[in-house]
Nucleic acid binder design. Structure first.
Lengths: 340, 340
DNA sequence: TCAAGTTCCGGAAACGTTTCCAGTAACGTT
DNA sequence: AACGTTACTGGAAACGTTTCCGGAACTTGA
């Protein structure tokens, strides 16, 4: 069936294109009789306006885009939900845009911004190490979530960010293990030296060791190469095989911790009786594992609502760009036990 | 900064708009010198073509949309990844579009199809009970994933589907418990009488009971109202409090089973020694829980690659609409134990 | 030398909207 | 009766592309 256009509707209604457009956009200046007639025809024909044409001519929309690298990240899914709720609550609409590992989020953002006439953009996941020249092309407000900081040289007044301090929370996690009497604390990380969250959290681990006067033992650090569970499981097995002298493991993510607990159990170690495990993220899931995880809980709902709220405030002209660092909460679970 | 248009590029290059468009689309009929000059300017200006304008005038694109209800569903995330890979592998590009619980996927699809000039659509999650009149407006091929069947009255030749038989796999799960000697088998379901996957799986439970000559005991059926873990946990607690005579629990999803195991454990029951738990889905996660789940594994990767492949075959004219029902695989875990 | 072909390029229409501007009809005011 | 308002409607330009068509310059073959 040939697609309906506004012209078809106008023709059927014996009206002009302008008038149909007016009722479509709820403008005044159209009689009730005409409005009803047009609405009936639209309903009956199932006419749907073409957004491309709209965006081409409109100067703005009511939509905010959420550009996320990896929608399948379980930590992100919670954020996505929260952001969506907040955006709808404030009367805007959200467009979710997933990008891949090797995509350029800024380029994507500029494209979306111009062609969808976005009000603002929210970046989730990624590193965002751009220069002011790069970002100059993005002329709408944006906020970066879950980055502790950027590695570029952006003017802080030109954008907003909201995050936890990854290094600090990792540090706190390790200190918690130390406070429980652990002295040989292994680390299960995903990547090193790539400016990623993994590296930041690893830095917190190292800092904590230093503060405690503990040596950094290379054989107790295992790098899995990725954040997923199979890799974490294998990494943990390697770690156990290589140097089984640790009493506790610090992992940089809940999902990795779950796999680590499994690997320990499969190796005949009880958690937490024989080995303690601590993690970072605070997924809902990790309250339902056995044992539950002791983890540094990121305030996902706060990150979500605040980042959306902050962006909307700026869009509405009642807020300045800000850089928020949220605190984390140690959620005691069953995976850490004091050493006797 | 004012957005760049193709006109700006043309002006800077002393060329016409047509010529710039030609290099943008890799057409011939442009000299090497001119092509290089234009490409340089494009690169240097960071010019990005406006897709809305493109879609308005083009008759087709190379993109396939994946319309998914609830990107945060952990079972879907695996499918999304697989679909994306297959689509890219075959040389097309994918647009992910998330819709909410109360959105009309067909309406969304028609809109996307016309304004993005889609080649095809893949629906993931939802019920799709439309009539032929409804779907007539969608004039591109589409395939429904993970629906056992539709409750509408569509001509099977007009679309494709790929799914497992939800009722059968639930039946098989319960039969497995029966084979292990279980006779009082509880059920933890999400919803009843709403034509959802939960209802289909519950129907399989009832059928299995009937085949085995077991009564359907109302006090052993608990409906949580949702698929998430907190609801499943609470539901399981209620079930235990109400009628603790069961020896096994059938749950309709892995996530719910994880919460159920936790609830049982918290109530002092060991899994699987005191109570067995069986589930459906076969998430990667449930191989890392303690105990691992015994679950009917849906072939997520096959669903993903086949549904994308099927759609692309149809798009390329080398395939007919088909309705594929995939088999499931009982993945033995540690949550089921024969009754002594 | 000339016709025919080839190669490259520009003009302009078209895609489906929104919005500005102008215009008409009815109405109230003096 | 003439005029200014108001309420409604239609025409047309504009948004940023692609693509068809035609034209200019150059090459080739006789």
């Amino acid at each position: 069936m040939k697609q309906q256009t506004i012209k078809d509707i106008a023709r059927i209604c014996n009206a002009s294109v302008s008038t149909v457009s007016r009722v479509l956009n709820n403008h005044q200046d159209v009689s009730d009789a005409m409005r009803k007639r047009i609405l009936d025809v639209i309903e009956q024909c199932g006419y749907i306006p073409n957004n491309s044409a709209r965006n081409l001519v409109c100067t703005s929309s009511d939509t905010i885009a959420l550009v996320v690298r990896g929608v399948s990240n379980p930590f992100f899914t919670r954020i996505i939900k929260g952001v969506e709720q907040e955006i709808y609550r404030r009367g805007y609409s959200m467009a979710l845009h997933q990008i891949n590992a090797d995509d350029d989020e800024l380029k994507t953002a500029v494209m979306l911004a111009t062609e969808r006439k976005l009000l603002g953009i929210l970046f989730l996941g990624g590193r965002f190490n751009y220069t002011p020249e790069d970002t100059a092309r993005l002329d709408i407000p944006y906020v970066c979530c879950t980055y502790t900081n950027t590695f570029g040289s952006l003017d802080p007044a030109s954008y907003s960010s909201i995050a936890v301090d990854d290094k600090k929370e990792a540090h706190d996690a390790v200190m918690r293990l130390y406070a429980c009497g652990h002295r040989r604390i292994a680390a299960l990380v995903a990547r090193e030296n790539d400016k990623s969250i993994s590296e930041l959290r690893f830095a917190g681990y190292k800092q904590a060791l230093e503060e405690c006067g503990l040596p950094l033992v290379p054989s107790l650090v295992e790098c899995t190469g990725s954040f997923d569970m199979p890799a974490a499981y294998e990494g943990m097995r390697r770690l156990i095989a290589r140097d089984n002298t640790f009493t506790a493991v610090f992992t940089i993510a809940d999902a990795m911790a779950i796999a680590a607990v499994k690997a320990l159990t499969d190796s005949g170690c009880r958690v937490p009786e024989d080995r303690s495990v601590i993690a970072i993220d605070g997924l809902e899931l990790s309250q339902y594992t056995i044992p539950t995880l002791t983890t540094l809980e990121q305030p996902a709902d706060t990150i979500a609502s605040q980042s959306a709220g902050l962006l909307i405030d700026i869009i509405e002209g009642k807020g300045q760009n800000r850089h928020v660092v949220l605190g984390t909460n140690l959620r005691e679970g069953g995976s850490v036990m004091p050493i006797n």
